[in-house]
Simulated scan of single mutants.
Amino acid sequence: MNESIYIYFHYRGVPALDRYEIKELVLFAALAGRVLLENGAETYRAESTVEHILRSRGVGNVQAFVIPTAIFLSIEYNDELYSHIERNKRIGIDLMRVTRVNDLSRDFSSGSMSVQEARLKLNDIKKSSQYSLLTQLLFAGVGGSFFTLMYNGGLLEFTGALIASAITAAVTEFLFAHDVSLFMRNVAGGLITAAASITFSVACTLLGLQVDMNIIIIGGIMTMVPGVAITNAVRDSISGDYVSGMSRTSEALVISVALVLGVGVTLNAARILLGGLMP
């Protein structure tokens, strides 16, 4: 290794890296960026995290280009070029994981943590969940049901939306765990929401209770509306990341179309099968 480079890194307190170590560092930085993207982080956050991790170990020339589905990374170290592409096929939302990756990045950059130790912690973050599945389903149901109050829904609509939201969250979480595509996941979500809402509404009608099925469907589906994707699309576009902005916009459109398709197909099928029983 060039002696001046070694002296420079040694002066900064950063040991010089061999080719294997720099490769491991690149893989760790790219994986950290991918975990951020998988859990709903903004493009600029993933880019800055990747660059921060690499520069903390003395890598000066870092070029990171991030879009929601991939990370393109190129660095120059000791007169050699290294490049890496990290694909991302999972899109979800878990802001606690985003926070934990940010904390890990800061700890890695400011301390003496090894790359191997950092990767183990990152893998633990990928597998971790702050809340149990039961808690997630409960609050998914509560979150959806409170939207019924905005549309003048009553106790029955509130209860129906709570049940529909919780069931939909369980199904979509199962599909996400099995790497089902974003489009099909949201089609299934719209279908389950509509089916649960129709079943609850028909049961209430048979019992002689008046209920507004449309309000239940609206409440049940609100937890799947792509608010984070739309927000990130606007933020990326404003910051000049137009490719990411268009990608996020496309993601929001795909989710919206999938939800409408799932709900529409289910409503039409129910009208044909149930006829006059539809509320």
Rank of each mutant, 00 (worst) to 15 (best):
V234F: 06
G190P: 03
I230H: 04
A32F: 10
R12S: 07
V202H: 03
E24D: 13
L37A: 08
I93M: 09
A166E: 08
V211H: 01
R87K: 15
A118T: 07
E3P: 13
M213P: 03
V265D: 04
N78K: 06
E86K: 07
R90N: 08
R45E: 15
S197E: 09
V98Q: 12
L259Y: 02
S112I: 01
N88I: 15
L95M: 15
Q136G: 10
K121S: 09
T168R: 01
I221R: 05
L122D: 02
L209T: 04
A29I: 08
T99Q: 10
S114Q: 00
R12L: 15
F176P: 00
E80W: 02
D107L: 15
I238V: 15
S132E: 02
L273Y: 04
G240E: 02
G92D: 11
N39H: 15
I255K: 02
A229G: 02
N102W: 07
G141Q: 01
L81M: 12
T231D: 01
N152D: 15
S250F: 14
A32S: 15
I91R: 13
Q136N: 14
A203T: 13
A269E: 07
R100Y: 14
G245E: 02
L162N: 06
Q116N: 14
V26N: 08
T193C: 14
L25Q: 09
V180H: 06
G160R: 02
F28P: 05
Q130S: 12
D179G: 03
F176W: 00
N186W: 05
I192W: 04
S83R: 05
